[in-house]
Design a protein around this nucleic acid. Structure first.
Length: 431
RNA sequence: GGAGGGGUUCCCGAGUGGCCAAAGGGAUCAGACUGUAAAUCUGACGCGAAAGCUUCGGUGGUUCGAAUCCACCCCCCUCCA
């Protein structure tokens, strides 16, 4: 069953490096194995960069293995230097522990805690590091690490070699801490496989070595590739910032839109990375899209599947409802309830009072966050790119914003769906 | 500690007394085309509706006028010790 899992992962392009490659398939086939992946609290939410490893845990669980999601209450206090150009600012223990709680909840949505021997578990490495004293740690753990080997790791090389950079002892120790996690999880849970992004290779192999030395156990490691985009830009960022998994930071609607805007050159690869759809199905979709000229279907499948995974059926409904309402152009068909719902669903919105409007339209839209500066609004007005309830406004309307937001022009007496350009929407409600 | 080079608008990078809100490229925003794509073309791109206001590491100074000259200070890089 599990060599089938590995074959599927490879078909999806999800396997980058494997430690113990020859023995891993047989080991996985031999029964329910325990594996783990760590997530450090560097913010109060994970972003889509963590999605691949999260789904990976799920893939293993679906294949009959037991996933442990480790939240780094301890490692988060130190900071991983891997491939980071600069030393990072330390966060206070209070802040980190607050983030740990958030991440625990977030991570939990992707794996199943019910059921038998392969029920998932969330663990926190602070549990086994908080009470270890320095001398014990140095003697029992530190002694197994060769600094000579540690400074050879590619992940810290630029920090050691580059002029002007540097690495504190604190961050340099990170690898030891993470290695200790693996050996402890091996001891406590029989964990025998660690997975992570390709940047974690050095930390993972460190843990494998330590586990062999202190527990005499042979354990495995597997990394996933860095997600790249065909145009060379960084995955997971948009003009407006990072795409987070937390609905409070990135609304399900914005999340859905992010995936819907995936480039053709990336979409089939992403379907393999980010969904559980069978590879054959994805290949079939690609062929169908290629035969049918015009708009491919893949993006909407991707957006649907990933939004459902992260935000659930209700989040997906909200995202699709907003998308449908905005991009169909049929505003007349929306009821007052629908507008209230859109606002509820995360469509950017604000309440305005005609008497308190600023002097110009540019100010109104900038304050609503639709544009970065008045110049952009001015440009858009000059090109008929500002629409209020589907009516274009011009530069001549700029000085009289009140005229654009009169009750007579409002939908259902109070709503103004305002569009700037093709994709930026904001709902103004008379208050 | 010594010698030299450098810090320019989001990024890279020109600019060495007025014609500089500052070349060029990238990013970004908007328009055309289209599929809410890609590529391409066009426009905008310090802030401001405008009048105007504020920028070129910092602080002072010279000058009718400074990103450009002077003094001191801070930071970065290269070489030497």
């Amino acid at each position: 069953m599990s060599s089938a899992l590995l074959a599927d992962l490879r078909a999806r392009g999800l396997v980058f490096q494997v430690a113990g490659e020859d023995e891993l398939p047989a080991w996985l086939d031999g029964g329910c194995r325990t594996l783990y992946c760590g997530f450090d609290p560097t913010a109060d939410s994970l972003h889509i960069g963590s999605l691949v490893p999260l789904l990976m845990l799920r893939r293993f669980q679906d294949a009959g293995h037991r996933p442990l999601a480790l939240v780094g209450g301890a490692t988060g206090l130190i900071g991983d230097p891997s491939f980071k150009a600069q030393e990072r600012q330390l966060n206070t223990p209070e802040v980190v522990s607050g983030w740990v709680e958030k991440l625990k909840a977030q991570v939990s949505r992707f794996i199943d805690f019910e059921g038998g021997e392969n029920a998932a578990e969330v663990v926190n490495n602070l549990d086994w590091t908080a009470n270890v004293d320095v001398l014990t740690f140095l003697r029992d753990v530190g002694k197994h690490f060769s600094v000579n080997a540690m400074i050879q790791k590619e992940s810290v090389k630029q920090r050691l070699e580059r002029e002007g950079a540097g690495i504190s002892f604190t961050e340099f120790t990170y690898m030891i801490l993470q290695s200790y996690d693996f050996s402890e999880l091996n001891r406590r849970y029989g964990c025998s496989l660690q997975i992570g992004g390709s940047d974690q290779w050095g930390n993972i192999t460190g843990g494998i070595d330590l586990t062999r030395r202190v527990n005499g156990e042979k354990v495995f490691g597997l990394t996933m590739p860095l997600i790249t985009k065909a145009d060379g830009t960084k995955f997971g960022k948009t003009e407006s910032g990072t795409i987070w998994l937390d609905a409070a930071r990135t609304s399900p609607y914005a999340f859905y839109q992010f995936w819907l805007n995936t480039a053709d050159a990336d979409v089939y690869r992403f379907l393999k990375y980010f969904t559980f759809l069978p590879v054959e199905e994805i290949d079939a979709l690609e062929r169908a899209d290629a035969e049918r000229a015009g708009r491919p279907e893949a993006q909407s499948v991707l957006a649907r599947e990933v939004t459902r995974l992260v935000h659930g059926e209700a989040g997906l409904d909200a995202a699709q409802r907003i998308t449908q309402a905005l991009f169909s152009g049929e505003l007349d068909e929306l009821s007052a309830d629908d507008f209230a719902q859109l606002r509820q669903d995360g469509l950017p919105a604000s309440t305005i009072k005609v008497a308190e409007l600023p002097e110009t339209l540019t100010q109104v839209l900038v304050e609503a966050g639709m544009a970065a500066s008045g110049k952009q609004v001015k440009d858009a007005l000059g090109r008929n790119a500002v629409l209020v309830n589907n009516r274009a406004l011009g530069w001549e309307d700029n000085a009289v914003p009140a005229a654009a937001f009169t009750a007579e022009r409002a939908l259902h007496g109070s709503y103004f769906l305002t569009r700037l350009g093709k994709k930026k929407y904001h709902l103004f409600e008379l208050g």
